[in-house]
């Protein structure tokens, strides 16, 4: 049926075209253009951009702030991901089991998810405010003196990590809930008859069964740790002395406060490569799982 095949071809591409235009314009083209721009110098009024090869990358490698935000980003990921994923798993198990007022508990866990990060930061800012903030007021009841939580390079990143865990755990809980609900109740029945304890059942049955979800959640958590920077605008502006700045926030600063687009493009390439590595990692891991099955 050659005529219908041709029709199929034409319709297929025709239907795809509107979405393709926007995807190319705002995802593929900018990704490639960013890579291209990273090899050029920043154009100014008197001097147009010229090809400089890897110079921007050399500058980046000697840029102390760059290394600092990369280190921060890694710590931010290490601080937020395992904690929020583990909490999400526990929350889901609790909310999935027999529990009085289950709906209320689930709502409490999930609510932070639907708040904008800006609103969350506004609320938490007051917790961390020195002396008059809630944390300092609470500690002063036990005789501790006030601390500048967000003004101290040693505590600022931890403060942001705690807030992010609060914001994210309930979101990841949802995926675990979905996974738990797909586990057949007969398994638990059988385990009970065999006399297995709850911990044993979790370790040997639940945990392995929800492994795909854990993988999915982990990937999402890693991506989030690189693209979630909204709160920094309210809480710290990346400070003090870049102690809480993250890669995407630094890109924003370089592009829109220092107006160095070429360098911002170079930094963006690092972010894109990181995301690509995560994508490839996900692909390989998923692949393995399929083989395992």
């Amino acid at each position: 049926m050659p005529s219908s095949t041709i029709r199929n071809q034409a319709y297929g591409w025709l239907l795809l075209t509107p979405a393709a235009i926007f995807l190319i314009a705002f995802t593929h083209y900018p990704a490639i253009a960013t890579l291209g721009q990273s090899f050029f110098s920043e154009s100014t009024v008197i001097r147009p951009a010229e090809f400089v090869g890897l110079e921007n990358y050399q500058i980046m490698l000697t840029d102390e702030v760059f290394w600092k935000v990369v280190r921060n980003n890694i710590w931010y990921a290490i601080g937020t991901i395992p904690a929020s994923v583990a909490l999400a798993m526990i929350m889901a198990i609790w909310v999935n089991g027999k529990l009085a007022g289950r709906g209320l508990v689930r709502m409490a866990y999930f609510t932070p998810t639907i708040l904008p990060m800006i609103a969350v930061a506004n609320i938490w800012l007051f917790f961390y405010t020195p002396d008059i903030g809630l944390i300092d007021q609470f500690l002063s009841m036990f005789g501790f003196s006030g601390r500048n939580w967000l003004g101290n390079p040693e505590t600022v990143l931890s403060c942001i990590i705690v807030m992010t865990i609060w914001k994210e755990a309930g979101f990841f809980m949802i995926f675990y809930l979905a996974a738990l609900q797909s586990i057949s109740p007969e398994l638990e029945e059988a385990a009970r008859i065999e006399g297995a304890g709850r911990w044993y059942y979790f370790r040997r049955v639940t945990f392995p069964l929800i492994m795909p979800t854990t993988l999915f959640v982990l990937i999402n958590a890693v991506i989030n740790s690189f693209k979630l920077v909204d709160h920094l605008f309210i809480l710290t502006k990346g400070g003090p002395d870049n102690a809480s700045s993250l890669l995407l926030y630094y890109i924003y600063e370089v592009a829109f406060s220092f107006f160095d687009e070429a360098y911002a493009a170079t930094l963006t390439v690092v972010l894109l490569v990181t995301l690509a590595i995560i994508a490839i990692g996900q692909f390989l891991l998923m692949d393995k799982r399929v083989h395992y099955r």
């Binding site: 095949t5 199929n8 071809q9 319709y11 297929g12 591409w13 239907l15 795809l16 979405a19 393709a20 995807l23 705002f26 995802t27 593929h28 083209y29 900018p30 990704a31 253009a33 960013t34 721009q37 991506i223 690189f226 693209k227 995407l248 890109i251 924003y252 592009a255 829109f256 687009e261 911002a264 493009a265 963006t268 972010l271 894109l272 995301l275 690509a276 995560i278 994508a279």
Partner: peptide
């Protein structure tokens, strides 16, 4: 619809799951 290049096109669509518009702020702004 069966059309040639469908799988490649779909893979190219999925790229956006990883590279969200907010990552490409510099280029999208221009």
């Amino acid at each position: 619809f069966e059309f040639s290049g469908r799988n490649i096109a779909f893979a190219l669509v999925l790229v956006q799951l990883m590279i969200m518009p907010e990552v490409l702020i510099v280029e999208n702004y221009s």
